[in-house]
C-alpha cells in the first residue's frame, strides 16, 4: 500500500461518526500532505451534506490488515463451532428460539 507520496498525495482513510450513538465508520479515502490537510479534505469531500459529529483520518499505510491469503486458518476460530450459538440449546419457553 505504501507508495511514493508527492504533491500532497499521501493517502488517508477517512472515518466519520454520522451521529451520536454510532461508532466511526469507514467512508472512503482522501489525499493530504499531512493530517490537518487530510482532515480538511475529508470534511470537504465527505461532509457536504448532513451534520456529522466527527472525523478521523488514518494514514492508509498505517492500517495493518489480515492477509486474504491467510483467510482460512486465520479465521478458523469462528467456524464450525455451533455450540457458540444459543439456538443449539433447549429454549427457555414454549415460544422457542425467541426467548432470551
Amino acid at each position: 500500500m505504501s507508495r511514493e507520496a508527492a504533491g500532497g498525495q499521501t493517502p488517508w482513510e477517512v472515518f466519520i461518526r454520522p451521529r451520536r450513538g454510532l461508532s466511526h465508520q469507514h467512508v472512503g479515502s482522501v489525499h493530504g500532505a499531512d493530517a490537518d490537510m487530510a482532515i480538511a479534505n475529508a470534511r470537504d469531500l465527505y461532509t457536504r451534506r448532513g451534520d456529522p459529529l466527527s472525523i478521523w483520518v488514518v494514514r492508509s499505510d498505517a492500517v495493518r490488515a489480515s492477509s486474504p491469503d491467510e483467510k482460512d486458518p486465520f479465521f478458523s476460530n469462528g467456524a464450525d463451532k455451533p455450540y457458540r450459538y444459543p439456538q443449539m440449546y433447549v429454549p427457555l419457553s414454549e415460544a422457542g428460539d425467541h426467548d432470551e
Binding site: 500532497g8 499521501t10 493530504g32 500532505a33 499531512d34
Partner: peptide, 8 residues
C-alpha cells in the same frame, strides 16, 4: 501542491 508538501 509544492507548498502543501513543503509545509508538511
Amino acid at each position: 501542491r509544492a507548498a502543501a508538501d513543503a509545509y508538511a
